[in-house]
Design a protein around this nucleic acid. Structure first.
Length: 920
RNA sequence: GCCUCUGUGGUGGAAUUGGUAGACACGCAGGACUUAAAAUCCUGUGACCUCAACAGUCGUGCGGGUUCAAGUCCCGCCGGAGGUACCA
């Protein structure tokens, strides 16, 4: 029987499924290991070769850890709520549940073919009512919680109500809306139900609040900050506006500091941590009040550079600032109204596109400088953002680039208050130098001056030292159909969450997936909503990231109907040991899942406060697009080598009809009708195409599916080849140039002891060279896996099999450990050969082989020990020596080494005692 | 602009703490088997000098530095990828 991957792979995939080989044990004496992949959104396009990259890596780890004696949890599921299915439903009328189901089946089929060791009994689907029941349940817990800054954790809202009844809100130190009013216990008691609800709403961790949101008219929904890129929606690229709306939001800002601190406790890539740090955007500074001239009002600003207070020559407020109307003088009224209208109509995209273009208008009003008493003009400018800090800045053109641009443009004075280069032409922003022209701050270094300034500001009651975060609360409502219904109803205009025992609130049927005529979301069309006719109900649904913010917990107890996951099981499985997924989720999913985990931890539902100990971002696999060249104005296509002779247009063609840049012309004619009558100009009888590296996408016809590779070379080859392509974390274009090497390797492995028609295995004891090859390989593979260097392990397998082939080694004592080593990478062939060697049990749980310590084998050394800063041993020579003799040689080597005359060696390596016992 | 990563043969990429650079694979060239092809196997393959071998010289983006020794560490440039931005 020659190596027939098709039969073998089918056989073992069936066996694994029937025997539930990879079902994780919920109570085991073995140590646990949890390997998780980011679950996919089941799109209509199916998997391409880029998707399995991370899954293969995690599967190798899962299988490796099983060999190492761990109880491994390695689940998979689907993030099955989302926009594309709904857009498709709008176009075709097909229910999203139906297309989602179809897509999931297709994904499952593709995943099964690759031979992953998932525990499918634990599959989750975020769109399944038995799953989103608990997503809704967590929403309710968040609603019923507030963040206590004194205990520094989330607590039940009852503790807040108790405090209100006792002391009002005077002692409460919680993140809440800026304009929360102070009240006493008796005032609280006198509040109406509505007033109480409104007040509590300002503290709840999920709340209904008015906020500027990213409104996308084309999608008819709001989007979170991380769903907007460059002023357009991430999905679909539609323009986004800012709009003030009443929305359900998550008070993630309460966790800003803990999300920041937690980063130091987890093993994630530095770049990803940096992204999150930047997104959270902590900045320390001070608030500062300016008295408005001839008015009772104070204008409050936030600054990180209070040391430059004497350099303030104007103050700028955002066009949306609440004071704009009230402070503008009648002479300036027309100009200001005109400017503010224009600024508001400017889309976010325009506003972000040309940041260097300066615009603004003088309000006619002034503030009084708190230290000099001078008159300072107030301007309106759209470079000041309404949503950050106080929406007003003190402008120091000498030491802030943006203020400088503004001052230059409008001819406002530029003052220098920090020693350094002249600031008339260019601002000096560095936080270095000594204060000048600054009264009590003169001569002080910037860092000292900042502290001194804050002290003085606080002493005079002008403001307070303050930490600001860039992070905003996350808008949680979406005006869409295909998402988790928010379990809220309204009684007399007061929002109530549903009782927990009535969950899930099932997504109701609608007649159309479009908004209603009066602009209400699709859920307003619900025919059979739970409380229809009894109460008003919430029409928005949860965003895409809701279901994925806690799914790692559900896998621990996926079929539990009475709780989101049994506490005993979450205590056992703790959190994810290894999480693999794309870096595009850095500021979305990976921030939200940390937030929910910390919340559930605070409320005592779980006992860990980070979802994943270690996280690896697999690189993207780009596509290699192919194109042919049509001569302009004709129906003629020319080969790539001839295209420069003509004016031509490149046309993308399907990569699957191209082999090694040779286009199959017959297939091309069939592929697109309009090529049927095309004239082709070939070179050397071939039509050569051009190539380009682009994102793998239907649009460029460069999608390669794992199925086609499995069909042609087998799943084991696909797995090995994807690893062989390069380091896991690096992005790289897909090409099949080297795949024959990997495929050839598996054939060689097969032939190692399948010779001339039968399996022949020798029971003889291995020779020294055979053992040397084996142990070297065990050592290298172990180290490769431990440091996630899967590409080099493939090379090391090849070296090993080549060497054993040269030695004509077919000895059981060598082949068995080798099969265990290879089994995580190429499980099907390993299982088959394992069975051929007479084993009845799956190889999956065979112990991983241990290696004898091999300390640098150097074949071409003719001295037992050499010293070149490090020790090098010729083991064959050294093995015959006693420890004493070796130590003597080491001393000699150190003393006689030519580089060490008169110097101490930098490093002394202790000779391992084990060395004399080495076999080889 | 800022942050993170990265730069090694014709190509993908090895080189774990500084210690024989280019493992392994692809490609290419030559050979064996074959009527032929496929498959398989063998040999060679960084550059320069040389008929060739031996030997030698140069070589990890560029310029410096530390070190007995630098792809690896330090300083300064240049290029590429990704992320991010009027955040005061």
């Amino acid at each position: 029987m020659e190596y027939n991957f098709k039969d073998i792979e089918k056989k073992w995939q069936n066996k694994w499924a029937t025997n539930k080989t990879f079902a994780a044990d919920n109570s085991s004496s073995k140590p646990k290991y949890y390997v998780l992949d980011m679950f996919p959104y089941p799109s209509g396009a199916g998997l391409h070769v880029g998707h399995p990259l991370g899954y293969i890596a995690s599967d190798i780890m899962a299988r490796y850890k099983r060999h190492k004696g761990f109880n491994v949890l390695h689940p998979m599921g689907y993030d099955s709520f989302g926009l594309p299915a709904e857009q498709y439903a709008i176009q075709t009328g097909q229910h999203p549940a139906v297309t989602t189901e179809q897509n999931i089946n297709r994904y499952r089929e593709q995943l099964d073919k690759i031979g992953f060791s998932f525990d499918w009994d634990r599959e989750v689907r975020t769109s399944d009512p038995s799953y989103y029941k608990w997503t809704q349940w967590i929403f309710i817990q968040l609603f019923n919680s507030w963040y206590n800054n004194k205990s520094n954790k989330a607590e039940n809202i009852d503790t807040l109500i108790a405090e209100f009844e006792k002391n009002g809100n005077s002692n409460i130190n919680a993140p809440c809306d800026e304009n929360t009013k102070a009240f006493t216990a008796s005032e609280w008691k006198s509040y109406s139900e509505k007033e109480k609800s409104d007040t509590l709403m300002q503290y709840r961790l999920t709340y209904l609040g008015e906020a500027y949101v990213n409104w996308c008219p084309a999608l008819g929904t709001v989007l979170a900050n991380d769903e907007v890129k460059d002023g357009v929606s991430e999905r679909g690229g539609h323009p986004v506006e800012r709009k003030l709306m009443k929305q359900w939001s998550m008070r993630i800002t309460a966790y800003a500091q803990r999300l920041l601190d937690g980063l130091d406790t987890i093993d994630w890539t530095e770049s990803l941590k940096e992204s999150q740090r930047y997104w959270i955007g902590r900045s320390e500074g001070t608030s500062l009040k300016f008295q408005i001239e001839n008015s009772d009002l104070h204008l409050e600003v936030f600054t990180t550079r209070p040391d430059t207070i004497y350099g303030v020559s104007f103050v700028t407020i955002a066009p949306e600032h609440e004071y704009v109307d009230s402070i503008t003088t009648s002479e300036q009224k027309a100009a200001v109204v005109d400017y503010v209208t224009k600024a508001k109509n400017r889309s976010e995209r325009e506003r972000q596109a040309d940041v260097t273009k300066v615009s603004g208008v003088f309000t006619g009003a002034y503030v009084i400088h708190p230290f000099t008493g001078k008159q300072i003009p107030i301007w309106v400018g759209d470079y000041v953002l309404a949503g950050y800090g106080t929406g007003a800045v003190m402008a120091v053109p000498g030491h802030d680039e943006r203020d400088h641009r503004f001052a230059k443009h409008f001819g406002l004075p530029i003052l220098q208050v920090v020693e350094g280069p002249d600031v008339q032409e260019q601002s000096y922003d560095a936080k270095e130098g000594k204060g000048i022209n600054s009264d009590f701050l003169n001569g002080l270094d910037v860092k000292v001056a900042i502290k001194k300034a804050i002290e003085e500001i606080e002493k005079r009651g002008l403001g307070k030292g303050k930490t600001n975060y860039r992070l905003r609360d996350a808008v949680f409502g979406r005006q869409r159909y295909w998402g988790e219904p928010i379990p809220v109803y309204y009684k007399d205009g007061i929002p109530h969450v549903m009782p927990e025992n009535e969950l899930p609130l099932v997504l109701p049927e609608v007649d159309k997936f479009l908004p209603t005529e009066d602009g209400e979301p699709p859920l307003a069309r619900a025919k059979d909503w739970k409380y229809k006719g009894q109460f008003d109900y919430e029409h928005t649904t949860m965003p895409g990231w809701a279901g994925s913010s806690w799914y790692f917990l559900r896998y621990m107890d996926a079929n539990n109907n009475s709780v989101f996951a049994d506490k005993k099981l979450t205590d056992y499985w703790q959190n994810v040991d290894l999480y693999i997924g794309g870096s595009e989720h850095a500021t979305g999913h990976l921030l939200y899942v940390r937030f929910w985990t910390k919340f559930l931890f605070d409320r005592g539902f779980i006992s860990v406060d980070e979802p994943a100990k270690k996280l690896i971002n697999q690189g993207m696999i780009q596509g290699t697009s192919c194109m042919v060249y049509r001569v302009n104005g004709t129906n003629k296509i020319v080969s790539a080598g001839l295209k420069n002779q003509y004016e031509n247009t490149a046309i993308h063609i399907d990569v699957n009809i191209v082999d090694n840049n040779n286009v199959d012309v017959e297939k091309l004619k069939i592929w697109r009708d309009d090529f049927a009558n095309t004239e082709f100009e070939l070179e050397g009888g071939k039509l050569i195409c051009g190539t380009a590296v682009e994102k793998m996408s239907k649009r460029w016809y460069n999608v390669v599916t794992p199925d086609s590779i499995c069909e042609k070379f087998g799943a084991d080859t696909l797995r090995l080849y994807e690893m062989f392509l390069g380091p896991l974390e690096q992005s790289k274009p897909w090409n099949t140039n080297g795949i024959t090497g990997v495929s050839g390797f598996l054939k060689k492995l097969w032939r190692l002891f399948y010779q001339s028609g039968s399996f022949v295995v020798s029971e003889d004891a291995p020779t020294k060279p055979e053992l040397k090859t084996l142990h070297k390989t065990i050592k290298k593979i172990t180290e490769d896996i431990e440091r996630f260097s899967f590409n080099t392990s493939v090379s090391n397998f090849m070296i090993c099999v080549n060497e054993l082939g040269d030695l004509k080694c077919n000895k059981r004592a060598v082949i068995e450990p080798l099969l265990v080593l290879i089994s995580p990478y190429a499980p099907h062939i390993a299982e088959e050969l394992w069975e051929q060697l007479g084993h009845k049990e799956s190889i999956a749980f065979a112990p991983f082989p241990e290696f004898n310590e091999v300390y640098l084998v150097e074949d071409n050394f003719n001295y037992p020990i050499s010293f070149n800063g490090k020790m090098r041993f010729n083991l064959e020579l050294a093995a015959n020596l006693s420890v004493q003799e070796i130590e003597k040689l080491v001393m000699e080597a150190e003393q006689t080494h030519k580089y060490l005359e008169g110097k101490q060696p930098k490093k002394v390596i202790i000779v391992p005692k084990k060395i004399v016992n080495i076999v080889m």
